[in-house]
Each structure stands twice: as structure tokens, then as C-alpha cells.
């Protein structure tokens, strides 16, 4: 039962530090800006369509989709296109065709669609940054302020102190993901209406050796697809949180630990582009964060990577981080 009190302590500290409020504020601002921008783009696209082609996006979208299909087919024939973009173009064509076949208007926006899209765009950088804000000073903050001394001279074993911090972090991760979901569904609802949760979504496209494999395509309702996206988001938060906490333990200064984990993450975003031939990069956690892209099949960072591979790699990193954290935390001498 003591563990519960310890977790309570950690939560009180987190709230008093105003970290959680800060994360929430960032989420609200960013989602609002993002939703507003989406809305503007949508209005402009519709205006352009009616101006140039004389069609309205709501009624004559089939005509437009047909045009887009032809465009993409032409582009595929171009000799300058590399294999990777060929594959993703094929996926997009397949999705568009699917939309046509099932009478799903891709131009229509909804809160459900926005909510899903928001997390798909956040999962590899924005969401991890929010988690880092919470995790990176959980231990290093106590080391640099000296309060770690007060914490570790109680009649509580060290592993229990760390476990309480770790569990608190997981609770916060769940909260951040839930807040991201609720806030984007609410805020975007004001722009696009609150519906769209039952609309069908095609998922399961795969690219095998540069060829599109549509044998395992599934038709799921939007809410279910959203749920999958946000579950993956939680998994990513958990992995990034575990690694951040480890760095927070190993590096005694908060600034240094935030710096290390952030630069690693940002580096991960271009490593997959520049070093995609270098096989070892696929075992780095930061190039495996775009899990949601496997759902839509639109993106493949490095040839040969798939959902199972990425999840395994990420899980490996998380387990290693937790083991290192606990061993180091329970054994270290507190000198400062």
C-alpha cells in the first residue's frame, strides 16, 4: 500500500511543477492551430476545384478522384521515380480506388478523421517531445536539486522509489494520449462536425519487394482505426518514456538529459532518409516510431521493416532501458 502513497507523492510533485498543465496547454494550442489550418486548406481546395474544374467537392468528388488516379498512373510511368515513392504512390492509388469502389469521399473532413490524422502526424516527434517534458527531469531534477538525498534515506528500498516514479510516468503517458484524443476530437469538432466515427477506413496495404500487396486489406470503421492509432501512440509514449527516464537517471542534469533525448529523436527523423542503406539504422528506436504508417501502408522508412519488426525493436529498447534504470538506480552512490 506504500507504493500507492509513493505514486501519489509523484503525482503531487508533477502537478505542483505545473508540467502536466504545460503539456495540456501545448496540446490545446497546437490542435487548435492544426484544426484551423486544415479547415482553411479544405476551403481553399474546394474553391479551387469549383473554379478550375467547375465541380463541387461534395457532389462531384468521383470525377476528381478519377482524374487523380490518371495523374498518378502517369507519374508511375516516369523513369525518374525511385522504388520507394513508386510503392507509396501505388498504395495511394489503391486507397483511392478503394474509396471509389466503396463510395467514400476522401475530401470530406470530420472530427474522427482529424483526430486520427493528428496522432499519425504527432507520433514520431510531437508526442515523444511531450513525454520527454514529463519524464526527463523525474530523476535528474531530484539529483540536481538535492532532494534525491531526502528520498533515498527513508525506510523505503530504492527499487520501490523508482518503481513509483516509473508507474507514475506510465499513468501520465496514458493521460497525455487520452487528452490528445479528447482534445483533438472536441476542438476539430467545432470545425468539421463531431461525426465520422462510423465511416469505413481501408487498412492493411502492404508493400512486398516494391510491389503492392492488397490481399490483406481490411475495412474497419473510423473509430476502430482511431483506437488502433492511439494504442500505438501509447506504446510509443511508453517506449520513449522508458528511455527518457533511463537517461534522466544516468545523466544528473535535467538540461543535459532533455538535450540528449531530443537530439536523438530529431536525428532519427533524417537518419532514415540519409542512411537508409545502412542496415544498422533500422535497429535504432527513433526510426521505428512511425508505427501508424504501417496501418495505412503509406510509408516505409527502410526496406524490409514492418509492424512486427518495429514493435519488437521498440520493445527491446524499452526493456533494456528499464533494466539499466533499475540496476543503476539501486546501485549508484549518491555523491552530490
Amino acid at each position: 500500500m506504500k507504493l500507492f502513497s509513493l505514486i501519489e507523492n509523484e503525482v503531487i510533485k508533477m502537478i505542483a511543477k505545473k508540467r502536466l498543465m504545460f503539456v495540456l496547454a501545448i496540446l490545446i494550442v497546437l490542435i487548435s492551430v492544426f484544426a484551423y489550418g486544415q479547415n482553411q486548406t479544405l476551403i481553399r481546395t474546394k474553391a479551387q476545384l469549383s473554379q478550375r474544374l467547375g465541380i463541387t467537392a461534395t457532389n462531384d468528388w468521383r470525377k476528381l478522384a478519377g482524374q487523380q488516379l490518371i495523374d498518378m498512373k502517369n507519374r508511375l510511368d516516369s523513369p525518374y521515380m525511385d522504388q520507394k515513392s513508386q510503392a507509396s504512390t501505388r498504395v495511394r492509388m489503391e486507397q483511392l480506388q478503394y474509396n471509389l469502389d466503396n463510395n467514400i469521399n476522401p475530401l470530406e473532413q470530420s472530427a474522427a478523421k482529424f483526430t486520427t490524422k493528428f496522432m499519425e502526424q504527432s507520433i514520431f516527434l510531437f508526442l515523444p517531445l511531450l513525454i520527454i517534458m514529463l519524464a526527463a527531469d523525474m530523476v535528474s531534477g531530484e539529483s540536481s536539486s538535492g532532494t534525491i538525498k531526502l528520498l533515498l534515506v527513508r525506510n523505503v528500498p530504492r527499487w520501490k522509489i523508482l518503481l513509483s516514479k516509473y508507474l507514475t510516468l506510465i499513468i501520465l503517458e496514458v493521460m497525455v494520449v487520452i487528452f490528445a484524443f479528447v482534445l483533438s476530437a472536441l476542438i476539430s469538432g467545432f470545425f468539421f462536425g463531431f461525426g465520422g466515427w462510423l465511416a469505413p477506413v481501408a487498412t492493411g496495404f502492404k508493400v512486398l519487394a516494391g510491389k503492392l500487396d492488397s490481399s490483406s486489406v481490411l475495412n474497419v470503421p473510423q473509430w476502430q482505426y482511431s483506437l488502433m492509432v492511439y494504442s500505438l501512440a501509447f506504446f510509443v509514449s511508453f517506449v520513449v518514456g522508458s528511455i527518457s527516464l533511463m537517461i534522466s537517471i544516468l545523466v544528473k542534469s535535467t538540461a543535459a538529459s532533455i538535450g540528449i533525448i531530443m537530439s536523438t529523436l530529431v536525428a532519427g527523423n533524417f537518419i532514415s532518409y540519409f542512411l537508409s542503406d545502412w542496415k544498422i539504422t533500422r535497429y535504432m528506436f527513433m526510426v521505428n516510431l512511425r508505427l501508424t504508417d504501417y496501418l495505412s501502408g503509406s510509408f516505409q522508412p527502410i526496406e524490409g521493416m514492418n509492424m512486427i519488426f518495429s514493435i519488437t525493436v521498440l520493445l527491446g529498447w524499452a526493456i533494456a532501458a528499464v533494466v539499466i534504470s533499475f540496476v543503476y538506480f539501486t546501485k549508484q552512490d549518491i555523491l552530490a
Binding site: 510533485k13 505542483a16 532532494t147
Partner: peptide, 9 residues
Amino acid sequence: ESPDMYKYL
């Protein structure tokens, strides 16, 4: 050493 407390509490 110094009586370090949580300054934000």
C-alpha cells in the same frame, strides 16, 4: 549537507 526541499511545494 544542505536542507534541500521541493521548492515548488
